[in-house]
Amino acid sequence: MVVGLGLDIGRKRVGVAISDPLGLVATGLPTLTWPQVPPALAAIVRERQPQVLVVGLPRYPDGRPSAQTRYTQKQGDYLGRYLHLPVVYVDEILTSWSAAQTLDRRRYRHEVDYRKAVDQRAAMLILQQWLDQQPHSFRSGDNYGSKFPSSVEC
């Protein structure tokens, strides 16, 4: 299986998520701030050993690229070279909005903490979207560990 490192790249912060070793579930990691992003990601790569960077690529709702699209591609390509990892771009339309909808703003004392949580959740959504598109070596409905066959003839 492939371990992915998901990134929601912004101009101030980068949301970060990592997949489990089976490549099934995305888990959030602490949100990073520029300019500490490259060395902090290098430490994560050394510790967690992902094989791919999965970067959310923002676009306008009609699919056209924006200034943020170009910025994200530039930073994603740079981080891929810096970390010696291939980069996969995933459409991230509305991930930050979706992430914000799942968080209770009142739980955060400071706006910056809320923003970091939104970025982290967006990175998780981006990575999970990519993971869900990957082929897996098992099929839904298989009875792993069961002593009974999945189809019983009567």
Rank of each mutant, 00 (worst) to 15 (best):
V2I: 15
E153C: 10
H84K: 12
I9Y: 10
D142L: 08
G80R: 00
R106P: 02
V2C: 01
Q36N: 14
R64Y: 02
I18H: 01
H110M: 13
D104G: 05
G80C: 02
I126E: 00
L53F: 00
Q68A: 14
R121H: 07
G28R: 07
G76E: 06
G76L: 02
D77I: 06
T31R: 01
S137W: 13
V3W: 02
I93P: 01
L131Y: 05
D8L: 09
G23I: 10
E153R: 13
R81D: 15
S150K: 07
S137H: 15
S146R: 11
G56W: 00
K12A: 09
P50A: 01
R109L: 14
A26F: 06
T69E: 01
P65I: 05
P38C: 09
A67E: 12
T33W: 01
P21W: 08
P65Q: 06
D119P: 07
A40D: 11
S96W: 03
P35A: 12
A26E: 05
V54M: 10
S96I: 10
R59K: 14
G63L: 03
M1Y: 09
G23E: 00
R64G: 07
K116G: 06
Q129L: 05
R106N: 14
S146W: 13
A17G: 02
A40S: 15
K147E: 14
Q49N: 11
V14F: 03
A123L: 05
A17R: 07
G80L: 01
V55D: 04
L29G: 11
S151A: 14
V52R: 08
G80M: 01
C154Q: 12
R46W: 07
V2G: 00
S151I: 15
F148A: 13
I18G: 00
K12L: 05
R139D: 08
Q51H: 08
Y82K: 11
D62S: 10
L24A: 08
D132A: 11
P30D: 10
A26W: 05
R46K: 14
S96M: 09
A43S: 13
S98F: 10
V55P: 04
R115S: 10
D62C: 07
D113Q: 11
D62R: 14
Q128T: 06
L85E: 10
M124W: 03
P21C: 09
R121E: 15
Q134C: 08
L5D: 06
W130E: 05
Y108D: 10
S66C: 07
R11A: 12
T72Y: 04
K116C: 13
R105S: 04
D77L: 07
Q68M: 13
R70E: 09
S146Q: 10
G28N: 06
P50I: 01
F138A: 08
L79M: 05
H110D: 15
A100E: 12
L32F: 08
Q68D: 12
V52A: 09
S151W: 15
P149S: 10
E92V: 06
V45A: 07
Q120F: 02
L32K: 04
R105W: 06
G23Q: 02
Q51A: 14
T102E: 11
T72W: 01
E92R: 03
L24C: 07
G6D: 00
G76Y: 00
G10Q: 05
V45C: 04
A26T: 02
Q128V: 04
S150F: 13
K74G: 12
Q49L: 09
G76K: 00
R107Q: 15
D104T: 12
